[in-house]
C-alpha cells in the first residue's frame, strides 16, 4: 500500500508547478506562507495505467489525505484517467489494446505482445487553478 506516498509525491508536484507558474510577476511571492493570496487548486487530472503499480481506487482515497496536509492543494479534487494497456503485436505489426495485464496477448491474432507501449503511465496531466482576485487599485 504505497498509494499514500504516491499521493504525497503528486501533491509536491502540484506545489512545484504552482510555484513555477506564479513566479514571473505573479500573485505574490511563491515562497511566502502568509499574507499574499494564493491560487486555489480545483480539479487535478492524473493518468494511471494498469502496469503503473498504482491502484486507482487506493490513490483516490489517499489523495485527500495528502492534499489536506498541503496549504496549496487543500480542497483539490482528483480525477483519474485510466490509460489502456497497449502492446505491440509483432505478428500484426500493430499496436493493440490488450484487455488484461494478466495475459499479454494480441486480441486480434492471439500472439504474444512482449513490448508494452502504453499502460505504465503514472502522470500528472493537468491542474485547474483558481487565481486570487487582483486587489482593486
Amino acid at each position: 500500500m504505497h498509494e499514500l506516498s504516491i499521493a504525497q509525491s503528486l501533491v509536491e508536484l502540484i506545489e512545484d508547478e504552482l510555484i513555477a507558474q506564479s513566479a514571473p510577476g505573479g500573485a505574490g511571492d511563491a515562497g511566502g506562507q502568509g499574507g499574499a493570496p494564493r491560487p486555489r487548486v480545483g480539479r487535478v487530472v492524473v493518468r494511471v495505467g494498469p502496469l503503473s503499480g498504482v491502484v486507482p481506487a487506493a490513490l483516490a482515497s489517499a489523495f485527500p489525505v495528502a492534499a489536506g496536509r498541503s496549504a496549496a492543494a487543500r480542497g483539490a479534487t482528483l480525477a483519474i484517467d485510466e490509460a489502456p494497456l497497449v502492446g505491440r503485436c509483432p505478428a500484426c505489426a500493430a499496436d493493440v489494446v490488450v484487455p488484461s495485464p494478466q495475459r499479454l496477448r494480441c486480441p486480434t491474432c492471439g500472439g504474444p505482445t512482449p513490448d508494452v507501449v502504453g499502460g505504465r503511465e503514472l502522470e500528472l496531466v493537468s491542474i485547474e487553478v483558481f487565481d486570487p482576485e487582483e486587489p482593486s487599485p
Binding site: I6, S9, E17, Q21, E123, L124, V125, I127, V129, D131
Partner: peptide
C-alpha cells in the same frame, strides 16, 4: 471571480 485556468503539466508523478 476569474475563471479557472488549466495548467497542462504531463509530468511523471514520481
Amino acid at each position: 471571480p476569474a475563471p479557472p485556468r488549466i495548467l497542462e503539466v504531463r509530468t511523471r508523478i514520481l
